[in-house]
């Protein structure tokens, strides 16, 4: 149990109400008390110390803070932490297994899908939602799905290649299992 408001903003005067919320974060049930104005991005970063989720523009444009809420990408700087109550939240830390990278992470590594890396967690989470819905996307579909995520380094070319690479790998693995 953590009270978070004092960590992420000026101390709340006594009497400011907090709400107890329970969410699933990367598969684990977490319960915390939060001040209602706390943003989900700040709960994840400062509260749970999962700093893979980046806050970029803080104005709903860049998508660096993208996490999955019930499997769908959302901009966590534009969701209140209290709204995550009862929901399933997945961050970039939930991608890799104990010993190996997620195919999307492998794709970004193999295809040089990152340079500075700031946009990468958001890109990967948006890509994960796409590949779960559509494991065999066209290049256009990848570009469309990532259109809410900005990258100022790569020109997107290698990001798109990385996601297509991951799709190929995920389909190949599914084929082996079948």
């Amino acid at each position: 149990m953590t009270s978070l408001f004092e960590e992420v903003s000026d101390p709340a005067p006594s009497g400011v109400p907090v709400r107890r919320i329970t969410m699933t974060l990367n598969g684990e049930r977490r319960t915390v008390d939060v001040e209602p104005r706390l943003l989900l991005a700040h709960l994840i970063r400062q509260g749970f110390k999962l700093t893979g989720t980046h806050t970029g523009c803080d104005t709903t444009n860049c998508g660096a803070c993208t996490v999955l809420m019930d499997g769908e990408p959302v901009k966590s700087c534009t969701v209140l932490a209290v709204q995550a109550d009862g929901h399933d939240i997945e961050t970039v830390e939930g991608l890799a297994g104990p010993s190996e990278l997620h195919p999307i992470q492998e794709g970004f590594k193999d295809e040089h899908g990152l340079q500075c890396g700031f946009c990468t967690p958001g890109m990967m989470m948006a890509a994960k939602a796409l590949l779960e819905r559509n494991p065999d996307p066209t290049e256009d579909e990848v570009r469309w799905a990532l259109s809410g995520n900005l990258c100022r380094c790569t020109g997107y070319q290698n990001i798109v290649k990385a996601v297509l690479w991951a799709g190929d790998k995920i389909r190949a693995e599914a084929g082996e299992e079948a």
């Binding site: 990408p73 901009k75 534009t78 259109s147």
Partner: peptide
């Protein structure tokens, strides 16, 4: 409307 992530909310 907006972008894909915003459309989800």
């Amino acid at each position: 409307v907006a972008d894909p992530s915003v459309r989800n909310r």
